[in-house]
Design a protein around this nucleic acid. Sequence first.
DNA 1: CGTCCGGTTGTAAGCGTTTTCAATTGTGCT
DNA 2: AGCACAATTGAAAACGCTTACAACCGGACG
Lengths: 328, 328
Amino acid sequence: MATVSRAMRGLPNVSPATRAKVMAGIAELEFTPDRNAARLAAGRSGTIAVAAASLQLWYTARVVSAVEAVLTAEAQDVLVITLGDGTAASLVGGVARRVDGVIIVDVVPDEFERSSLRAMRVPWVLAGCRDEEASSVWIDNVEGGRMATRHLVELGHRRIGVIGGAPTRVRSTTPEERLQGHAAALAEAGIEIDPALVVDGNFSVDGGMEAVRALLRMDDPPTAVFAMSDEMAFGVIQACREDAVDIPGRLSLVGFDDHDLARTVGLTTVRQDPSAMAVSAARTLLDLLAAPDRDPVHTEFELELVVRRTTERNSAGASVDRLRDRLK
Amino acid sequence: MATVSRAMRGLPNVSPATRAKVMAGIAELEFTPDRNAARLAAGRSGTIAVAAASLQLWYTARVVSAVEAVLTAEAQDVLVITLGDGTAASLVGGVARRVDGVIIVDVVPDEFERSSLRAMRVPWVLAGCRDEEASSVWIDNVEGGRMATRHLVELGHRRIGVIGGAPTRVRSTTPEERLQGHAAALAEAGIEIDPALVVDGNFSVDGGMEAVRALLRMDDPPTAVFAMSDEMAFGVIQACREDAVDIPGRLSLVGFDDHDLARTVGLTTVRQDPSAMAVSAARTLLDLLAAPDRDPVHTEFELELVVRRTTERNSAGASVDRLRDRLK
DNA sequence: CGTCCGGTTGTAAGCGTTTTCAATTGTGCT
DNA sequence: AGCACAATTGAAAACGCTTACAACCGGACG
């Protein structure tokens, strides 16, 4: 019994002859070990959860896919958990006593969740944003927002709309951090931020459409928009096409992500690499599982502004520049 | 012990008073049941696998997401398994004795896999294509291919390229079925199929780019292309934009899926609803779990041609039409 | 030839539930 | 009050592994 167990799992201290016999027997009997029993006996589940707010986003699909690839290669099962509105309960409930670790994608666990995870001794790593307590693999969202808006400011835009996500909906710090960056870039240029220009696009194509329409209906509409995800930016493009609003002529547009299709539609965007982040997050968790007392590690991934066809010099803003130059 | 177990799981034959006491105790002790032990004892894992060739495709992301939503609501865990190249081993290995059922997305299991699943008594349902043995939730891919090509034929196109996936790569009947439909539509119009016009686009944006470039380099290039997925069609659009090939002026294009962004880029496409299919597949599997001996059920979902801006009457083909009319 | 030791194999005690079945309690009748 | 019977509770046997530990085996060494 014990020898078979050892032989099957490739543990040492089994003679080659015995191992061969065991393998032959397994093949002959078509024996398949019961993973549940193994889990119970070993006290480990061999399963890692990936928790995200949605699986439909381009970003999360990439992350889950890459995580799955890494973990499967390490013989770990991958459980997916989506965090809807009743998030607290579902992260804790989803994880409860059945996984060895969790990768939390772009959602910041609250104190209750943290203490539950600690109590269950389930290590976690955050992918997408920084976490002070646990390991994380992150991008500098503040800097990303700043890059996007600075680009628009440099093109002469002064009234810049922001399409993000309401923080209540997605319990993520990402939207607010990118907004901070946006505000910082504005401040650097001496532009005052107008809260009315910040609208919710729900990180979806449809949300982006609605959001840009709301923005353009304003008395003093923006000449440029920073959408916090390419998917929302695609919505902007679509709505503008339908409403005959020229991009970039009348409205410049910057997205965030560098979605596969950003190139197709010529979208200027802030590029990140979710697959690489996900691989790193998975490896970090695996390391943590092997050495639980290790100090948290934080890996930052770079962002890059990719300028394409949806951004252009703002004529009105440019004339203001000229005016200002002349006044010197 | 037994009473607690019953009370916790909401089974009958527990007095209200006892149940309340149990609940109080659970709360006080912060007790969390060990799912692995429960699984071992009950002989069920409470876990369902979703197996797909890739998680990065728009289509599979939708399916996994919808499946997850349904199954989570039924307190089932969702395990994701991607089927790479060594598919046989991984489907069987992935499923081995740890899940109660599998939803296989757009991959047709081979005889070895079928017999393994049968031997392990793991029921499965196929999402995306029809299966004679097990339950399936499917679309008529032949008809879908026919719809796409018939539309192009009606617009006067005679040389129509097809961008699909090599069947060896994705062990799915989908590409070949859609190709059959294409051939049928061609045959109905009395057009002979040219095998050189059928190329592999790997169901990716990049693959679509390469494929359309190969097509356009031909001595006698097509005037229209049917791409078997919108993602490949997006690649076509991108390559054509880069190469200054006018769509639909010089090349008409039909996709397949009705991706979120198909509307954004004005892509004519064959619409399917993977979320609805996935929900149906999940429910079918749940039913099967409850009543294992039920006869297989097959649910067909409708396809719909959505005409947008990437298809246009072919001037050359149109003139042939006129010529033919005059000759009558 | 006996002893020691590293490597290998076997034994048996869990792991934390579920579930069967027996024991107990409570209820409604006569 | 006594009885039959249903509802509830409790005891204990699985479930199929892992793993600590004991037992064994054979070669190296004194």
